[in-house]
Write a protein that binds this DNA or RNA. Structure first.
Lengths: 304, 304
DNA sequence: GAAAACCATACCCTTCTGGCTATGATTTTG
DNA sequence: CAAAATCATAGCCAGAAGGGTATGGTTTTC
């Protein structure tokens, strides 16, 4: 590439447009000889005259016309680029890509809603995937933020809790313990449980509690879906422990109930996770701020 | 405009394309830290990160994608521009605009033909206009070259003769002098003449000769067209003096003849004229060279 | 014809660019 | 786990780039 500088093109464009060196100099706020010099340099660099002075009138040669067209187009597209950048900075535009584990689908949409309406120019994509898929996406840096219940140990990530995620004991509506308060842990320990598969965050937490209390965990059934588990519980197949998020909050669940067991709800949190050295986009930063400010309003459990 | 340099964009483009700093450094033939620095400068200038390094992998942020698109397009259009310039220099492309006085229409086309075929990429425009119109065009710098019989006195032009332009005396085919050789000037001086209007170059030259010889010029008829004059001469209305160019060379003119008068043909030339400080385009220069080299072949009078 | 406008040239100066080497931290690879 | 690859940082330097003033020659304008 020739050693042409942007400044030279900018000066040339002004001269070509205004058909005058001195007016161009005025417009750019430099002295007239500076303009002369830039044009001369440009002309030497390109190897063809670009401008003709007949009398004192400025004419463009054919090469000059070509260059004028080229750099007008360039200035134009650079202008659009600058505008885009300004928009990105000003949040008038942008994309926010979030990947979240399946269970979050019960509340994430409601948290995104207000953010959407506050920044209508921002496109949001929420990928709801299982934990493994999410870790894959994170490894490939496919999203801005990740939401999960148990942040990876991996030191190459950083995470912070942003929302409570209590685990509650679920029983069928007509289970004998439903009406009882302050149920002892031992009272449910011998029950059959329906739980998510090994490796699931919830399962992990339940196993830990049983171990701490010194009871064996009797898993009658492993199901891959929270909805299926709720159906199973409702059908009287056993008890379960699930994130409270999975319960429909508005339409009170009619066929299953939460047991008031000692040690429950297990206090857990939802975490915002991101690669350690990933510098967040302005949009992502803003979203995190937004969450912190609105969490009280949004926190369905209100107990912050 | 931000203080972004082309070099920075070039480096960025390479990094974005190759997804690697060190490979980009190789491609551009600089050390790797140089690339790091350029990217850092760009990033500081724009105010948003453009590149993300997750592990050692290069990812583009949204702003980075925008910039990549922008400067890819730019490099592309600059490449086309450079190609155009190269073509112009190499005469693979270009425009040659010539304005010439009316009489040249008898020979200019034949001179342009061979040039056209040698440089097929060059578009040629030949404007055939009267002298006044031609001077106007010259004042407005509308063409590359101008052809006329009498270059303007104006010092702001330069001109050079390139082709003979003999003025000959024409008589009707059956005029008594047609057969005679070495006719004395006095023998035709009393004849009636049919000439172009005042201000025409030919008219000027004729008047001058008559004055030098001390004879009054008797103009019977003024006509604005060479063709009309030839018709008038053929019709026996009088003699005339015209550029030999106006006679059809191939189909020998049957109804008018050239008289072999003392002092004729008046030696005149066709001139290539251009504004003094106009720098000729490569195409125009080449055309002038071409004319000089081919003039012997082209010169219909062969008497160079 | 005088004044004003316009561009070119010469010369000088400051700042910024682009580039290098050396070195260190981290990641990836073998 | 050691070696290789990859990028960041720091510090240094030469030269390019950008800009200014002074001045002079033309052209245009009044």
């Amino acid at each position: 590439m020739m050693r042409v500088t942007m400044r030279q093109l900018q000066v040339f464009e002004a001269v070509a447009r205004l058909r005058s060196y001195s007016r161009a100099a005025d417009e750019i706020h430099v002295a007239q000889p500076t303009v002369s010099k830039q044009i001369r340099l440009l002309h030497e660099e390109i190897g063809l005259p670009l401008i003709e002075l007949i009398g004192k009138k400025v004419f463009l040669t054919q090469a000059g016309e070509e260059l004028y067209a080229t750099c007008s187009a360039w200035l134009d597209s650079w202008g659009r680029f600058e505008q885009t950048i300004a928009d990105l900075k000003g949040l008038k535009q942008g994309r926010l890509s979030i990947a979240a584990v399946t269970t979050t689908k019960y509340f994430m949409p409601r948290m995104l809603g207000p953010f959407c309406s506050q920044y209508p120019g921002i496109d949001i994509s929420l990928e709801v995937v299982n934990r493994d898929r999410l870790l894959e996406r994170m490894a490939q840096n496919q999203d801005d933020l990740y939401v999960m219940g148990i942040p990876p140990e991996d030191i190459s990530t950083q995470s912070e809790p942003f929302l409570e995620n209590p685990l509650v004991v679920l029983a069928p509506q007509f289970h004998p313990l439903v009406a009882k308060r302050n149920i002892q842990f031992a009272e449910i320990a011998h029950e059959q449980f329906i739980l998510r598969e090994h490796g699931s965050g919830t399962r992990l937490a339940v196993e830990k509690v049983f171990e701490e209390r010194g009871f064996p965990l009797r898993v009658k059934m492993e199901l891959g879906s929270n909805e299926a588990i709720k159906q199973a519980v409702a059908g009287g197949l056993g008890l379960s422990v699930l994130s409270k998020s999975t319960l429909n909050l508005d339409a009170t669940q009619r066929d299953i109930a939460i047991l008031d067991v000692d040690g429950f709800p297990i206090k857990r949190y939802w975490y915002l996770v991101r690669p350690r050295d990933k510098q967040l986009s302005v949009v992502a930063k803003t979203f995190m701020e937004f969450l912190k400010q609105h969490i009280d309003l949004l926190n369905p459990y209100g107990s912050r």
